[in-house]
């Protein structure tokens, strides 16, 4: 126990400098993300931000998450963003002009207010020296009068990865299993939405009665304005004269 405690206090100055430098990088890259005109530059700022946060995770005794952060976020998610940006060729300048006059100012004011209230609410109780390992409430929780060592003790006992793994497969096993549903949906969703071209015949069940396609829905070049709310006027464009063939048969087939 004592070596851990010593480590925790001795490492203080290093932690402070790490926090100052990495925190500045994180803040700067976040500002860059919202101010950069070029979307690709914004994505690179996002990578920088994720890497900075990964360093903070390591400092905060979350070694496993630090690695996951680099692999999943910086390695996969941002690459996906960049891939889509490149695929669509939208690295061009995109204007920062406001949609509504004054929207930027309003948004900034809202952001500052949000920051002040969130920072005051969250950080308020945790600015003292005792906060390194816990608020008073948390200290009371430990109860047995030991000096609070924070996560260092937990990690020293089993190692961060083992600790997280055990939790994941005991207390959180149901949540862990449930994420499989999420991943299946994501995979299906990407296929449904992303399939480049499809056989129109595939979307119509063989042997069922189907009305002709709606105007603008069967061809790829659907006019952008279609389906807009201005559908008030009755439109005379229905290709009439197609008697609904074999209603009785269709009825039988639609019975479920």
């Amino acid at each position: 126990m004592t070596p851990v405690l010593a480590q925790a206090t001795e490492g203080g100055a290093a932690e402070l400098w790490t926090f100052i430098i990495v925190g500045a990088v994180a803040l700067g890259s976040a500002l860059g993300l919202i101010l950069m005109r070029n979307a690709v530059h914004a994505a690179l700022m996002l990578v920088l931000n994720f890497l900075a946060i990964a360093v903070l995770y390591a400092v905060l005794q979350a070694q496993f998450l630090a690695v996951i952060q680099v692999i999943v976020y910086a390695g996969a998610i941002v690459v996906l963003f960049l891939f889509v940006l490149m695929l669509l060729g939208v690295s061009r300048e995109d204007s920062l002009t406001a949609r509504v006059p004054g929207q930027k100012t309003m948004a900034s004011i809202v952001g500052v207010l949000l920051f002040v209230s969130l920072a005051a609410a969250t950080a308020g109780p945790f600015l003292g020296d005792a906060s390194v390992c816990g608020s008073e409430a948390a200290l009371e929780g430990t109860g047995d009068g030991e000096p609070c060592l924070g996560l260092a003790a937990v990690n020293a006992a089993e190692g961060n990865l083992r600790g997280v793994g055990f939790l994941l497969f005991t207390d959180y096993v149901w949540a862990f299993e449930v994420t499989s549903v999420l991943l299946v949906i994501a995979a299906i969703g990407a296929i449904v939405l992303g399939r480049r071209r499809e056989d129109p015949a595939e979307l119509v069940e063989p042997g069922s009665t189907v009305l002709p396609a709606r105007p603008g829905e069967d061809d790829a070049a659907a006019a952008p304005g279609d389906g807009a709310p201005d559908a008030g006027a009755p439109d005379a464009g229905r290709p009439d004269g197609r008697p609904d063939a074999e209603p009785s048969r269709a009825e039988g087939e639609e019975r479920t």
């Binding site: 926090f19 925190g23 969250t122 600015l127 003292g128 906060s131 390194v132």
Partner: peptide
């Protein structure tokens, strides 16, 4: 000295 946890929360 160490970094109070509040700093991380502010960030």
């Amino acid at each position: 000295m160490s970094v109070p946890a509040g700093y991380y929360l502010i960030l």
